[in-house]
Design a binder for these strands. Structure first.
Lengths: 186, 186, 186, 186
DNA sequence: TATGAATGAGTCTTCATTCAT
DNA sequence: CATGAATGAAGACTCATTCAT
């Protein structure tokens, strides 16, 4: 009995993703189960705690986001790579609507999640910042942790397409702030 | 009986202020009524919507913040006035714990709160933006509503002193973004 | 607003009495509320804990049982007063079907019930034991808490008249056990 | 495959024994299966009804308890044999925590169990009573069925070591009651 | 006008039982 | 035959909101 479980697991993950986007991370458990086409018992079997589900979703997409940093770094000039990745991060955060709220909640259950977040994304952004700084595209002194928090904040409440577009504009503005006062090098 | 009503009103305002700080703006209605020493019915009489209560609490300081725009405009060069006021706005938002959460929640219950917020602060910021733009301190096209939302978002989770300092740094960075690409005029 | 509450309170008490007899003290909260013709919220308002409801039902007769100790002590010789009261206690327990079950369940929900039970009946029995012991009618060292538990246990399943008679015989036997080895004094 | 089935059967019996002691006869089915190291499906195959499992366990231990009567009768004086066996009976009942509840539940599925109970234990206790009575260690007229019920009741709620000790003390007290008023014979 | 009692929908969570693998 | 995943009914509890007093 393996295929069933895997199918349920995947369905739950997918359903939770969608429901969290639509209703936030505090959405009723029953809604997620219903959307996945399984009983609530099945949800509880796979994810005893709500945070288990959140973490499962978060890790998956978070990895993809972190990996994108390398791709962008390889395919774009330093300054553009940074800007692009920040937009990519916006997509990640807005898609995971409410997950940053969980991250910031201070609840100790999310401690591992915070650690994982820092562990994966901070180095990725740090790398992009270093390259952009070395190229003189941005001024020095940017702190990756702060920028990630800030960008998350700028995505706050971005549920619809307009909110997403606004978040992208504001993050672009933030990146422009990094560019302000930079001394381009040859 | 008019004095009673006024007494209830004041007690509710004071109680809500304290409860919001302690438990956030989503605190149970009953807790607020209990702290005020009145029945929940009385609370609903004075504040039919939760947002009415929130507005009542924040109105005074929100007004003060809006008025500060004029002061800064009179006492500083356009670009600096804008930057200073944005920091002033950070102070307001971080002091009103949970306010930005309510603003961004998207919950229609808070619609009146958003309306009042926009009605007071948008014009104030618009004026500062216009002057800074006219002076060539910032590039054109900035949207006050977006900036207010963004700055609120940057204050997300800023409970302690460090969070406040970070919020100020990030808002300063955002303002630098506005400066980036501007063409200074004589 | 007093008549409503009283009406609900009484209805709940009456309903709970009937439901407990029919389905035991673990009957669904909703059943009791339904039988009383009120919402579950009303039940929780009056009786936040299930044990509060049980206590409310049993309190009156429990008090009467405790008071009987004084009466018996005044009207009978120490040894007989003890024996009589233990039979009185049997009547109380057998009449309150399910009470001892709740008392013995070990469920922390019933802790307040146990406390009240101990608070009322332990001192009453202790007094009777002290007097009987002082008179040399029973041997020393009897523990009131144990005896109450034991007598409750002996009433287990005593629903009909025969069960009641048997319970009385067994409790009498237990009291005889206390008498065994006593050294009568003048 | 026959050995597998037998192994599962035995494991389930042993596991159920332990789980019933720890959590009572209403313990989750899953716990028993888990402790036995088998799936719940296997449990249901061997014991379609919960009562089937209870009965299977009960009979085994009940036989051992009944046989102990002969052993005690052979190795101790009549009065002591009775007292000892009653304590042995306490051990049996407390070990089978909650089984007496099932026995008293009135559920017709347990009728054969009740019959078997009476058929095995009543004669055993009757024999001990007869011998003790003949020796003048106890007064005449004791009814084995009542005593068994009573002793079961005294074990009510005896989950921990202290409860067990108390049950033993109370049963000893009950036996002392039988001794009270006896006329020792040479 | 003030009160707070009443309502009941909404949520979480557990677990006996079935059945696909 | 064994497994354990899936199911979903059942029950406890909360709290925003209404309305009788």
């Amino acid at each position: 009995v393996r295929a069933d479980a895997q199918r349920s697991f995947d369905a739950l993950l997918q359903a939770a993703k969608e429901v969290f986007v639509a209703s936030g991370v505090d959405a009723p458990v029953r809604d997620i189960a219903a959307k996945a086409g399984v009983g609530v018992g099945t949800l509880y079997r796979h994810f005893p705690q709500r945070s288990d589900l959140i973490i499962a979703i978060f890790r998956h997409e978070l990895d993809a986001c972190a990996l994108a940093a390398d791709t962008f770094a390889a395919e774009h000039p330093p300054g553009e790579a940074l800007a692009h990745w920040m937009q990519r991060y916006v997509d990640f955060v807005t898609a995971k609507h409410g997950l940053s709220a969980a991250l910031h909640s201070g609840d100790p259950v999310y401690a591992p999640l915070r650690d994982y977040f820092d562990q994966r994304l901070k180095p990725a952004l740090q790398m992009l910042l270093d390259r952009a700084e070395a190229a003189g595209s941005i001024r020095p002194g940017a702190e990756p942790g702060e920028l990630l928090s800030a960008a998350s904040g700028l995505c706050w409440g971005a549920r619809d397409g307009e909110g997403w577009a606004q978040a992208r504009r504001m993050v672009a503005l933030l990146v422009d702030g990094l560019r302000y006062g930079a001394e381009p090098r040859p």
